[in-house]
Design a protein around this nucleic acid. Structure first.
Lengths: 184, 184
DNA sequence: GATAATAGGGAATGATCGTTCCCGAATAAA
DNA sequence: TTTATTCGGGAACGATCATTCCCTATTATC
């Protein structure tokens, strides 16, 4: 089931919600129409389940990318690098379900809006935690405003997913190098 | 006609492309079905025309916001402030056609992709120009990398539109204050 | 003033959508 | 072996979509 959901994630990432038909979904998930409706109440339920799966995988990846750093500042750097890399190439042009869900459904579907909000706020809290870690271990100056910087970094990561979907190239090292000035 | 197009812009911003039916469009534009199809070849043509109108208005607003500054750095600051303000409240939750077009259609429609790319690149070039102005008038250090900083600022502006559509609050002064560190 | 041309309005149309219903195979129970 | 039950598959359904067609005023032309 998780593997079918992963396939649904790919389709929803690439085509979004409304442009994805049940036919697209059954083809991608290798399930018949009836089987999909036996497992999920309706199309929205498939989307929500796929979103949760996407968010969980993505959260895990982000955390393990950050773990590669040796202090708060370095963990933040690795996290940003991870985001740039995944905003590029094949995965970049496929797109992000958080960004896609927000842009396409935040105004139309309160349930989806609640999920994307939760996901964004979780990410923001994670970033804020890393900044505080850095301030604790001395790698980030104490005068850096935790909340404002975290929110701006969320804007940067979400924005990179947009720019990556538009297929503009993003140079990871260079972009992150500039972004790290925010921790000065 | 421009006023009808402005109304179409509002609908496309809020609902995106696929969730906007011809019925939504005719209701918003105060035009009958036949009249819409007499003025435009098909729904995509309405979207492209609305997008061009949106981009033109937006470009003008951005430029006049920047003009409020007295040197390169201040012009950049006013431009960023303008973006935060418009990413919030009523207009923020309505959404941005560039972001929406990218996320919903960049992977599916080459014509839309070309337009959003052109718009993003125009904005980026405008930002780069402001940075260069600042370096010329001494308000921005010469060691600031123009292209990388401009691209990161594009990510910030696009990301703010995503976060604003998700209805998270954005404090203009504070966020821009942090972002201006990128010009150090 | 009569007629041609145009523009706007809305019903009809075919396609496609999401959803439901029902069938057949496979498994478990008797 | 026979019967009951579950599960995956796909045809059928009503609704809605984008699009076309045609009708009716209104304007311009002669």
């Amino acid at each position: 089931m998780d593997t079918a959901l992963d396939r649904a994630v790919r389709v929803f990432c690439e085509r979004g919600y409304h442009a994805t038909s049940i036919g697209d979904l059954t083809a991608a998930m290798r399930l018949a129409t009836g089987s999909v409706y036996k497992a999920f109440r309706d199309k929205q339920a498939v989307f929500l389940a796929a979103f949760d799966r996407y968010a969980a995988v993505r959260r895990e990846q982000t955390r393990s990318a950050a773990a590669r750093g040796s202090n708060g500042r370095e963990r933040l750097r690795h996290m940003l690098l991870f985001y740039v890399e995944h905003s590029q190439g094949i995965e970049g042009r496929r797109g992000c379900m958080v960004v896609g869900g927000t842009v396409e459904l935040a105004a139309l579907d309160p349930q989806v809006r609640a999920r994307v909000n939760a996901q964004i706020e979780t990410n923001e809290a994670f970033i804020a935690g890393l900044i505080r870690e850095g301030q604790g271990d001395g790698s980030i100056p104490a005068h850096v405003d935790v909340d404002d910087t975290a929110r701006l970094m969320i804007c940067i990561t979400q924005g990179m997913r947009v720019v990556g979907k538009a297929r503009l190239p993003l140079d990871g090292k260079r972009l992150v190098g500039v972004a790290m000035k925010l921790l000065a």
